[in-house]
Amino acid sequence: MIELNFHKKLLGAEGEMLLKIELNIQKGALITLYGPSGAGKTSCLRILSGLLKPDRGSIKVHDTYWFDSDQKINRSPQERATGMVFQDYALFPNMTVRENLEFALRKGQTKNIIEDLIEVVELGDLQNRNPETLSGGQKQRVAFARALVQKPEILLLDEPLAALDVKIRLKLQSYIYKVHKEFGLTTILISHDIGEIVKLSDQVVVLEHGKIVKKGSPQEIFINKHLSGKFQFTGEVIAIDKEEVVYIVTVLIHNSIIKVVADSSEIKDLNPGDKVVVASKAFNPILYKIE
């Protein structure tokens, strides 16, 4: 169990903001921090990893205090068992892929884990390349593997997939899920992609202006209406067009665009850019094999 209870004044784009977090995370859970940019998500990860010091409060991980302002405990990042994947990956440009992973080894740690990780994230062919010659998705995999070398207790992922295209994204999502389970990690993910969140996480914590405004399962958070439909996808409204008596809503779901017929009451609160759930029931889906 990870018990977070801290606050910190942050200087954001919109002036001063108080980040106030009270949250318990079960061991082995994969939770997502969700919310507008500037809400304090990245700061939460930085506080947890020790890069940023809260003003007051405590961080307790499996009965050990990592931070406690009353007892004046503040473990340095070096003394906290976290792994972090940075938004810019932070791969060391002066080292090859393999050297990046080897650099992460603890003193006296055997190299076996590196072979395992290279295999898990399929870096075998890339291990002697320099990071700057890699594509975004490849860099991402290296950063991910490097964060796991020391077998951290908590894995922190700061929008790890935001810059990648859909196909690689889907593949990496499955890596994250696989490794999270295999290594028995507690993972905290920052993501804006509702599809990704629904797929990966056990719990979603919604942050706004430094406060937790909602938390629950992805279904509870994003899909307010309980639907009995067998099919549901989340997507983004691209356009709403009026056609005679009905409206045609164009929705982007992953990388496919679909059109949905809606009446005027349904589109009342709908604007382009809104996240929506497209659900359907009472028809027989047909499967075609494509690959």
Binding site: G50, L51, Q78, A104, R106, V149
Partner: peptide
């Protein structure tokens, strides 16, 4: 980038 020394510190260096 500040993330380089930060990443190294999280890796215990």
């Amino acid at each position: 980038p500040a993330s380089l020394p930060e990443a190294a510190s999280i890796l215990g260096k």
